[in-house]
Design a protein around this nucleic acid. Structure first.
Lengths: 236, 236
DNA sequence: CGGTGTGAAAGTTTTCACAGCG
DNA sequence: CGCTGTGAAAACTTTCACACCG
């Protein structure tokens, strides 16, 4: 509340046109996570070099990434954690709170309902839906499971802006269509399928098996590369 | 069993040096997922254009990506689903089965133990560990929860190669250290922290709150861009 | 034909390197 | 001095366009 910056890029106001690469935004989330940890540990300022080292990036990359959104640093000092956290949350949109509707309350859905990590970034799951009549009416983590037919009304009444799909693959597109029809602006999809969505609806896919697959590739190819490095001692 | 290709890149043998961009590998997983769906639906062949359209990529990108690993297509025809699936699984490492150890059997861990999606790609969670003595000895999804001290022995005896961290943030690094000491080659980390690992251990992080954050950025910046497009009708 | 594989061109992202600031 | 912000160069990724194939 006491900070005035020279050329401030204060509250989420991107420099007009700014087409920011996706990969930059994903690093932003990592910076923010690390900054919050540092702040909790009592650190007041941090340099691009330190922050980069903690995450495995170069100092220049940290500065360039932040440079997409404004000027946040102090030459000779670095960045003030509190200030940068506020700025990053403005940029990422997590200074405002987001209401989320979950569709599909199976094993994974129930675990996600209980996950504390969402709340810390201002996401609240305010409603849960399931197509199975046997589940409707049950209470999980304080939420009463509703029939999917209730989606439009609940999205409107509870100001839901995001949807979370946690149904089996073959039901995911239908769930997405219902969420879109109900008016959500973005969807996180935990089902292992690619959704077809209108362009005004944003989406992020999380496929747990694919994450393991990426790991098995990394492990396998690491071993291959090591095996190949026979006889080659060091290229000039 | 009956296929011979001209310049085959058959079983996971990358063209010797091949340093494949990470983003290519992540698309590979999407190709594979889509191919498996198509095959299950009875489709025998597919062209780069069709596959790309289903996933939102260009035909050229699909071909270039596959080109990193060998030649799999038939001019005038496209790719044979079955053959390409086998090749991709060889490349990604999922034709062999992978034993996984889970550390942290809370809400999310239990849900992941029950998740069917892993098995389809040949990943099996063969052991589960928890530091909480109250949990040790309980049976979840057919696995008896073991104390973390058992890790080295179990990893050896059950041929575990991958670890899955599902503990709270402040316990994650310790869990990682134990997995590394026990000899795993790769780690999937569901805790919202960056792990420090020796370079021979691969890792993939999955932060559920970050996925939502990426979505909130996309939604917010979409709205901003739309708001800015006032007066500008179409740039030359 | 319809479609692959692939060099070469275009576009994008990362790294470098340094002026400038408190 | 230590560190940011930023053009310019280097590295990398995507798209283009076309020879070639069945």
């Amino acid at each position: 509340m006491a900070d005035i910056r020279p050329q401030p890029a204060q509250s989420g106001e991107l420099p007009s046109d700014a087409t920011v690469p996706k990969v930059v935004v994903s690093r932003l989330s990592l910076y923010l996570r690390e900054l919050q940890r540092l702040q909790a540990a009592g650190q007041e300022t941090i340099s691009s070099g330190q922050l980069g080292t903690l995450l495995g990036f170069s100092d220049a990359q940290v500065r360039k990434d932040l440079g997409f959104f404004g000027q946040f640093g102090y030459p000779g000092v670095g960045y003030r954690c509190e200030e940068l956290i506020r700025a990053m949350r403005d940029i990422l949109g997590t200074n405002q709170s987001w209401n989320v509707a979950m569709v599909g309350v199976g094993n994974l859905g129930q675990a996600l309902l209980g996950y504390r990590g969402f709340g810390r970034q201002n996401f609240t799951i305010v409603a849960a839906f399931d197509a199975d009549p046997a589940k409707v009416g049950q209470t999980v983590q304080g939420l009463t499971i509703q029939p999917v037919e209730d989606l439009p009304e609940t999205v409107r009444d509870k100001q839901v802006r995001l949807g979370m799909i946690v149904v089996p693959a073959q039901r995911a597109q239908e769930a997405a269509d219902r969420l879109v029809a109900a008016g959500v602006e973005g969807i996180v999809n935990f089902a292992p399928v690619t959704l077809t969505l209108p362009p005004h609806v944003q989406n992020v896919g999380v496929d747990l098996a694919i994450e393991l697959e990426q790991l098995s590739f990394a492990v396998t190819s690491k071993l291959l590369r090591a095996a190949e490095a026979n006889g080659t001692i060091a290229g000039p």
